[in-house]
Design a binder for these strands. Sequence first.
DNA 1: CTTGACCTTCCAGTCACTGGAAGCCCGATA
DNA 2: TATCGGGCTTCCAGTGACTGGAAGGTCAAG
Lengths: 139, 139
Amino acid sequence: MPDTLHDAGAVTVGEAADAVGLPAKTLRYYEEIGLVVPDRRGNGYRAYRPGEVHRLRFLKRARSLGFSIDDCRVLLSLYGDPGRTSSEVKAIAQQHREAIEHKVAELLSLRDELDRLIDACHGDHRPDCPILDNLAGGR
Amino acid sequence: MPDTLHDAGAVTVGEAADAVGLPAKTLRYYEEIGLVVPDRRGNGYRAYRPGEVHRLRFLKRARSLGFSIDDCRVLLSLYGDPGRTSSEVKAIAQQHREAIEHKVAELLSLRDELDRLIDACHGDHRPDCPILDNLAGGR
DNA sequence: CTTGACCTTCCAGTCACTGGAAGCCCGATA
DNA sequence: TATCGGGCTTCCAGTGACTGGAAGGTCAAG
């Protein structure tokens, strides 16, 4: 576990995972797709430095807000770019917000349609069922 | 295209797809997973009979209501089972409704959180950005 | 020296398709 | 009869974002 002089402050994938609250598998996946690429120790073990752990935390938070991996890639690069503008960041967030809003509208419409079918179905021991009738009727 | 005496009323995958409004690829996929398995003509072509086209329409409608393929499998089997009870059907629909409701709640919570961040961000040419700050701060 | 907990890579599976390649079949035209 | 175009066949791979598992290397402790 040392290499302490060479990899000062660096931690293994398991330690980084515990520190951030993501599975180690996910960290390996993020490396594979080039999101957070740690150094390696002499034995081949990943060595996450504090900056990379920080990026992982950033990623975890962004993912928990529903941003796609591609969005996260852009957000991370903006985060690391002193020449960014806040309008670039805001645009991504707004686009994501609209996508969510759109999906909510879809789901609410589905829910309402299901509610109508569920209300129409007595739900007893008999076989006749307005839900199946609707599915079969296709309309 | 005949075989008319043997496969009366049966249509090819393309014709069935057009009739139902699903891509032919999807019909082949539904056969692969055992949802709707048509006969074959002498030349190997799929032969969808009216009953199978009907099941495909049922599937299309159920999928458009957001039911999973597994749900659809059960719904189809209930549809074809005279001994079913409407309560079985209703239970599936209610479970699906609750899953949708749950997802809506999640998305609305995400949306509200995004709204707060978006409102806090002035969105101009300057680099400082509460959205990035929040992602980086993790809290 | 062995145990056990790590770590490594690679492969497969998830869900419901979708795209594409290679090749067969059929009706219609030249 | 040759061939052309369109539709049919199968099989393989990719999507998003991981997740599970197998086979094997590494390391500190007992």
